[in-house]
């Protein structure tokens, strides 16, 4: 369990990225922080592995204040996946996946063997192991990034807009892959995105952030749609307009779900 207690982040130049945030991130679930630029969602994520230290309040992992843990040790125990994969361009795929275990002192042979298994896990062919990141497609790089994040079998996996830079088709694929993986592994996933659809798709808990680093609402997707906390949330999730205001229409004896603009959104199967 990860807990933010009255967390504030003010940068030396005076801007406040996060203001007095209290939130509990439940274990073995996916929590998605969603908001536009400047809402402080990435700052919150980075406080978990001490890439950023809060200027007020505490971040606790299983009851331990992260401020008391050596940052390098902390990071080696938490999976991290970022946009553009963040792979080391000068190391082969296999070495990238094995990076953290080897930093922790695992023997190279052992780390490599495990890395190959991880490539299977994320749906990559083992023949890619000896390539360099620049020789992979964007989607493949992201998968390697996920494999690296899983390499030390962390309880916590931080994902910072991991699918932000790939095209929509690959993105949909990666999202499904993540759902499958999470179904098997049950990690505590903290995911940051600005895409509300992605948040609703992946999140067990969705945290909607607004400008200035304040939480507007934290709840399950269904709860948010049913009871948006305020006008900002309602507007952000589009509950009262466009494609979320759905209604049914009959076409050739089947029930088609149609949005407010008349675009078909799906089929109702009983």
């Amino acid at each position: 369990m990860i807990e933010f207690r009255g967390v504030t982040k003010q940068f030396p130049d005076g801007t406040v990225a996060v203001r007095d945030v209290d939130i509990v991130i439940p274990p073995h679930k996916t929590t998605v922080f969603v908001g536009s630029s400047g809402s402080g969602k990435t700052t919150l994520l980075r406080m978990i592995n001490r890439m950023v230290d809060p200027s007020g309040g505490q971040v606790l992992i299983d009851g331990t204040d992260v401020a008391t843990v050596d940052p390098v040790r902390l990071r080696r125990g938490i999976g991290y996946v970022m946009q553009n994969s963040g792979l080391l361009p000068h190391r082969k795929v296999i070495d990238n996946v094995a990076t953290v275990p080897m930093l922790r002192g695992t023997k190279k042979r052992e780390a490599h063997a495990h890395a190959l298994e991880l490539l299977d896990t994320v749906g990559l062919d083992r023949s890619l192991a000896d390539r360099y990141p620049s020789q992979l497609s964007g989607g493949q790089q992201q998968r390697v990034g996920v494999a690296r994040g899983l390499a030390v079998d962390p309880n916590i996996l931080l994902m910072d807009e991991p699918f932000g830079a790939v095209d929509p088709i690959v993105r949909a694929e990666l999202q499904q892959e993540l759902l499958r993986l999470q179904g098997e592994l049950g990690k505590t996933v903290v995911f940051v995105t600005h895409d509300i659809d992605e948040a609703f798709l992946l999140g067990d808990q969705v945290v909607i952030m607004q400008q200035g680093g304040k939480i507007s609402q934290a709840a399950s997707p269904a709860e948010i749609l049913a009871h948006p906390a305020d006008a900002f949330v309602a507007d952000f999730v589009g509950a009262d307009r466009g494609k979320r205001a759905l209604h049914l229409t009959e076409v050739d004896g089947r029930s088609i779900v149609v949005d407010a603009d008349g675009r078909p959104a799906g089929v109702l199967t009983s």
Partner: peptide
């Protein structure tokens, strides 16, 4: 690239390890 350095830090490279290794 700064992204690469950030990611090296994020996965747990120490300051000196990051210099020599990345």
């Amino acid at each position: 690239e700064r992204d690469v350095l950030q990611s090296a830090t994020a996965v747990g490279y120490s300051a000196t390890g990051r210099f020599w290794g990345v």
